[in-house]
Each structure stands twice: as structure tokens, then as C-alpha cells.
Amino acid sequence: MNVAVLGAGAVGTSVVELAGEYGHDVVAVADSSSAAVDDDGLDAAAILEAKRSGGAVGDAAPEAAFDAAYDVLVEATPTTLGDAEPGFSHVRRALEADRHVVLANKGPVAERYEDVRALEADSAGTVLFEAAVGGAIPVLSTIADLNGQVTAARGVLNGTANFVLSRMAAEGLGYEHVLAEAKDLGVAEADPSFDVEGTDAALKCVILANVLYQETYTLEDAEVEGIADLPGSALELAAEDGRTIRLVGEVSDGRVRVGPRLVPENGTLAVSGTLNIVQLETTHAGRLNISGRGAGGPETASAVLADIGRLPPAGRN
């Protein structure tokens, strides 16, 4: 398929880099300031080099990406809350042009799920968003394969928060100390509030709720509590009792909740480091656990490319 990539961060550039391996051509790449477009296929190496050296991805205006002969738009711009712009408008433009959309951006499917589904209904294009939940972990495709059998989902869906909690528990270090370390390692961003306040995990749970219940949830419907400033003594007390604390998101009985939870120290949910895990409760298949890398450029790009492989033949005329 011909792929247009919007967003040239870690995920976007990895999609550009790996698309060829999956048999796809990248015909457009755009970030917020410029675009590179070539209907015969762009040279991935040249784009990556331009981006790495701090330059523009191309010499066209970002808008030009929409004029390319693409079959699928990969939306990998940063997640925004509320109106989910500019991601939502990107999705709209592609669907109105009867193209497919694959999202890594959580905003449109967490905050405006109903709008996205309405646009999709009027379009020949299809929307998929595996990469928005759990990075490399095939969560949404598993749910789709289970055909309505999944009754509840829970899991550890933020690697930064999990890294902080597992380091605090393992080393007996304080919150601020571990957070600083996480920033040094590139595990936490300079402003980690999205991760440690639970917002990122909550968005993923909202998306899961939208998929499981076929209703429209937004971040406002989620009960969210983060792990910021959790004292080490809380983890020590949990450990004395054979437990530990993880930032767990739960989607069950129509509710979406994210918060620090006590889990068995050596239990399934107590993954360590930046790993993520998702547990699905099913009607006939019992409980399924899927864990893996929940973030990272190539990891998340692999989910984007898997979605592209699942798309029906091109919607483009």
C-alpha cells in the first residue's frame, strides 16, 4: 500500500524506516513544519537523515501530504486532549477522501470516538488503532478476534509509571530520585505529568472501553489517580505483605478506573521496568494475559504496520 505518515517523531520515523520491509511504499511524510512527497515512493534513508540532522523532512508545505497518492494515512502526531486536534482533522480529511486511517495518536479515538466512527461509516476507508493501546502488544486485534467475548480488561499501560514504581520497590529509592533517573535514561519525558498523573494510561483504557462497550467514553468518564509523589513507605508496607503497587487501569462493568493498586508481588500484573501487560477476561476462554513493550519507535511502528496489513484493499479509487 501507499502510506502517508503524519508526525515525524519516534513512531512516525520508525514507520518510514520499516514500511519497506512490510512491502509498503511511503509516498508522503509530514511534521508540523514541512512535508516530503513523492508518489513513486520516498527514499526512507534520506528522510531519516534529514530529520536526524535537525532539518526539515522536506521542502513542501505540511498540507501537501494530503495531495499524495496514498491509500492509508498513518496519524502519528502527538496525542492531544479535548478536541484532539490537529489529529482529528487529519483523520477527517483522509476518511472524507475515502482513504484508510491507522492511528498511533490516542486523542481522536479516546476523546472523539463517536465522531471518528461516524466519519468512518460515511467513508470507503477503515480506521484501525492498535498502536494507540499498549504499543507493540496486540490488544485490540485480540479483542476483535475474540468476537465480543471480552467482558473486561485491565492492565499496566504506562511504562514510565511502571518503571518508577518497580525501581522504587526494588531499590528502596524515593519517588523524586527514581523519576530523575528515568529522565536521564530517556524513560520519562522532561515533563512526565502525562505519565505519572495517569492520563496516558487512562486514555488507553478509555479507548478499550470504547471498543468493548461500543459506546462513547472520553477522558472525563474515567476515574484517574496517578502515582506522583507516592512515598517509598507505601511500597515498603506493601512488600511486607507480599504485595507491590502498580498503576493499573481497569475497564469493567461500564467503568473506567486508573490508579495505584495493590497487586501480588510476584503476580502476573507486577511486570517490571517499562513493560506493559494487558489482562482480558473472556466469556469462554478464561483470562488472557498479553505483555510486551508498550512504547518505543520500532515497537509501536510494528503495531501500525500490522494494522496496515489488516486493512481491506485500498479505498482509494
Binding site: 507516592l230 507505601a234 481497569e250 490508579g259 493498586r261 495493590l262 501480588p264 503476580g267 500484573l269 489482562q279
Partner: peptide, 12 residues
């Protein structure tokens, strides 16, 4: 006060 709750019943 902050509450670190156990997971809902039946999960581990």
C-alpha cells in the same frame, strides 16, 4: 488521604 486499593475481586 490517598488510597491504594486492591484490584477488584477475581483479578491478580
Amino acid at each position: 488521604l490517598r488510597v491504594v486499593e486492591p484490584l477488584t475481586e477475581g483479578s491478580a
